[in-house]
């Protein structure tokens, strides 16, 4: 199971990096979203995947899931959710004020 998840996370990373290298701003934003999904899956996988086991350790319970990665992933999801929505608005405003959403035209000159 861990192998499958690792491959999936890797695929997400690859797709994310590919999109990040595009010129169009929207694609880049989507790329960062994919990257963060990859990172989150990766955190979950790194805490070892157990089936049917609660993240609680009590007396008598022999098999349990590590709760820490779940706490980490939750924090991280909230953060990336906020950043992505902010980034979408920013991309739109950048497009509005600069009249282009291509990164190679967003270079600017020295004398500003």
């Amino acid at each position: 199971m861990e192998i499958v998840m690792s491959i999936l996370a890797g695929t997400l990373f690859a797709a994310g990096v590919y999109l990040l290298l595009q010129k169009q701003l929207l694609k880049i934003v989507l790329g960062t979203a994919l990257l963060s999904h990859g990172a989150h899956l990766f955190i979950l996988t790194m805490g070892k995947l157990n089936r049917g086991a609660p993240p609680i350790l009590e007396k008598g319970i022999k098999i349990y899931t590590d709760p820490l990665p779940q706490a980490l992933i939750l924090t991280s999801i909230v953060i990336s959710f906020g950043v992505t929505s902010f980034l979408l608005v920013l991309a739109y405003r950048t497009y509005q004020s600069n009249k282009t959403d291509m990164m190679d035209q967003l270079r600017g000159t020295d004398d500003e």
Binding site: T32, A39, M46, G47, I79, T94, S97, L106
Partner: peptide, 28 residues
């Protein structure tokens, strides 16, 4: 010009943050 430059600033910092989480996961 602020929009233009801040997009780059934010994208780079965002990328390095994602890398940070990934590294923490490795370390964990």
């Amino acid at each position: 010009v602020q929009f233009r430059e801040s997009v780059k600033y934010i994208l780079l910092n965002l990328f390095s943050s994602i890398l940070f989480v990934t590294t923490v996961a490795f370390l964990y």
